[in-house]
Design a protein around this nucleic acid. Structure first.
Lengths: 216, 216
DNA sequence: ACCTCCAAACCGACCGGTCGGTATGTTTTA
DNA sequence: TAAAACATACCGACCGGTCGGTTTGGAGGT
């Protein structure tokens, strides 16, 4: 595939994502996507075997981009402090800043869109999404495990539960954001989760080094 | 409309809801729904002007049922205790029990499904959904306002923020539930929110009467 | 530097099937 | 017996996908 070829492929994908996020996958025809790119059927079926492969490519692209974003916030947090709790709080504020800076009218998660359209996709795609969710969740979980190793929670809680909670808050936040047409509600919800963490982890275990910096 | 007529209408609706929750609205054809009921086109278009009206009827039905459920849990909570915080915690545990007792393989929220299919619906439907979300949220909000009137939160928080948070947790929980095929994850997430409330509201304002009963 | 040539990239007309919707007829119920 | 309730055949539009053809771009030969 030449440079121009893969550029066209990317053009199709980046035109398809917002359309599907707004109209659903079944509600978005191939012609809709092509109209948005100025291309035609020939180009589409040269780069994709069919609509199903487009679905697969889209979800993989989304997973890749999201993972990179996660790693960026993670690196930023690790550069800022050594304390695992402070790192996690820093991570969340970085995420909140990102959401607030987004000027897109409505955000959304491709995984969630697919999850609610269900059966019409290849089971392999659903497996990939579930795996992506778990992988994403595992990144959070790792953070919370580090926190739990240094702090005694005020209530019994597992790293897994905390990871699932922030994931649900973000996914549910997108739904509310879309329905309310409120672009920054996800950031406000993340702030609630941060408060939960702050209330949960107030006492350190063993020899203290440096507590977490108070976040705004 | 006769008794049999409205029964048929209801049969169509209750057959359509799970299908749409599994395949999406655009991904579910009228024939799919009719095949599930044993009826034919004639019956469908006798009771609905078109697919759009089915969408409207479905979302209204869902809103009605959800509201009733909410009121049921609410009455149960108010019968159990007078303390606003204890009532709210009781409400949440009742909701958790409900989720855990559900034996449906996949749960889901019609509002969320519509929200991710977006543009293909009448704007009036989206307005109705947003209004339903807000009305639902207002019920939570009223509870939290009562709590805030009796308890001083450990961190600054508004009733609105708490209402949005539990709504997001439930909506996001459904997405995770579907993707993971885990029917009770929503209950576990609700429990996290309960813990947040317990940590947030530890000190009463003014003369104490009776603290909230510790929930399991 | 220029031509050759071929594969990748892309076009656009077309096909079969499906979907939402209609028209008309038949049965059931009050 | 009339209206409500439902069945059935059918239509036009659209959608995913195919196919033969044209353009483009770059590697290789001279």
């Amino acid at each position: 595939m030449s440079a121009k070829g893969s550029e066209t492929r990317e053009r199709i994908l980046s035109a398809a994502e917002p359309l599907i996020l707004r109209q659903g996958f079944a509600g978005t025809s191939i012609d809709d996507i092509l109209k948005a790119t100025g291309l035609t059927k020939g180009a589409f079926f040269h780069h994709f075997n069919g609509k199903g492969e487009l679905a697969r490519a889209l979800v993989e692209r989304y997973a890749r981009n999201d993972y990179e974003l996660f790693e960026r916030f993670s690196a930023e947090a690790e550069a800022a402090t050594e304390d695992p709790l402070a790192q996690t709080l820093h991570f969340l504020t970085a995420f909140e800043d990102f959401i607030e800076r987004l000027r897109e009218p409505v955000a959304g998660c491709v995984f969630a869109a697919y999850t609610y359209e269900g059966l019409q996709f290849d089971p392999a795609i659903h497996a990939f999404i579930a795996q992506s969710f778990r992988r994403w969740s595992a990144l959070y979980e790792k953070r919370f495990e580090a926190v739990l190793a240094s702090y005694r929670p005020a209530r019994p809680v597992t790293a897994r539960e905390l990871a699932d909670t922030i994931m649900a808050i973000v996914e549910g936040g997108f739904i509310l954001s879309r329905s309310y047409n409120d672009p920054i509600i996800v950031a406000r919800l993340s702030r609630q989760f941060r408060q939960y963490l702050e209330l949960l982890f107030v006492s350190r275990i063993g020899r203290a080094r440096s507590g977490p910096g108070r976040s705004s």
